[in-house]
Design a binder for these strands. Sequence first.
DNA 1: CATTCGTGAAGACGAAT
DNA 2: ATTCGATTTCACGAATG
Length: 320
Amino acid sequence: MNEVNQNNNERVDESGSSSTSATSTVSTCPECDGRIIRDEEHGEVICKECGVVVDEETVDRGPEWRAFYADEAEEKSRVGAPTTELLHDKGLSSVISWENKDAHGQSLSAKKRQKMQRLRTWDERFRNRDSQDRNLRQALTEIERMASALGVPETQRETASVIYRRALADDLLRGRSIEGVASACVYYATRQAGIPRTLDEIVVVSRVERKEIGRTYKYLVDELGLAVEPTQPLAFLPRFASRCDVSDEVERRAEEILDGCPLTNEFSGTSPDSLAAAALYAAARLSNEKRTQSEVADATGVTTGTIRKHYPRLLELSSE
DNA sequence: CATTCGTGAAGACGAAT
DNA sequence: ATTCGATTTCACGAATG
């Protein structure tokens, strides 16, 4: 009930901007100090630990307006207005009496009555929208709060918000707490981005039980027809490694171990975070940076027993 | 002495019915 | 909605270095 998150301290770059380092390799992430990797496929520079997209020296929060070369103009014109999903709009409210009387207390003609009835139904719709807005507003601050506590980058917060909006629009919130759905949205967003957090990690910053988050998540995925790829053990590795404070070499070794294991057959059904933890333990053991099982367990949220159970097979398969 | 290892009961989860 | 099978967790004691 203690532990967790000693590495999430916000570290702000006090030296301000400048730093005009050429477009060479950046090595540490401004958000979490993790390793920065160049993603050739998407032409992005990203942090493998938290998923932050680091473009040269700034985090890109908006559309790309500028094109530096002629060829880029086409590519970058994809964007529209620089909107953010994190904002909500205020609605106006008004009250319409239920009585069919005019301002003088006189009864209304049949025609006017019909008109008023139409107005009421519209009023009802707007009022309904208002309550949705309040709901949304609260949800968005929740998402913000949890995301920043977890070090989840902007883009993922936005997808979380988008999902929440869809859930709201599709009337999927009945009987569910705002927080629960918001938590599930954050969980989904991180998974979607390929930098998944554990349900346990979400629980730490959420006021909702793990069980409910899981249930809600599944519900959302089903109802909204969201496509989620099964989580890969490799996705957990960078964060786990940094929490165990092992060298890059050990991390790479753990990657190799996981690479060498066909997930489809041998390890189907084994939860990916368990495998990541086991691989990490195995890698540290192979190198001269041995960690105890309980150290790895504390850092990863996987129990010692589970690590024990898997690491021998991982070693076996990877050494062939 | 700390760490690792093996075990079984109990809970949680996904798939199938 | 319930049942079934597999996995994970937890707690314990034994073995190991």
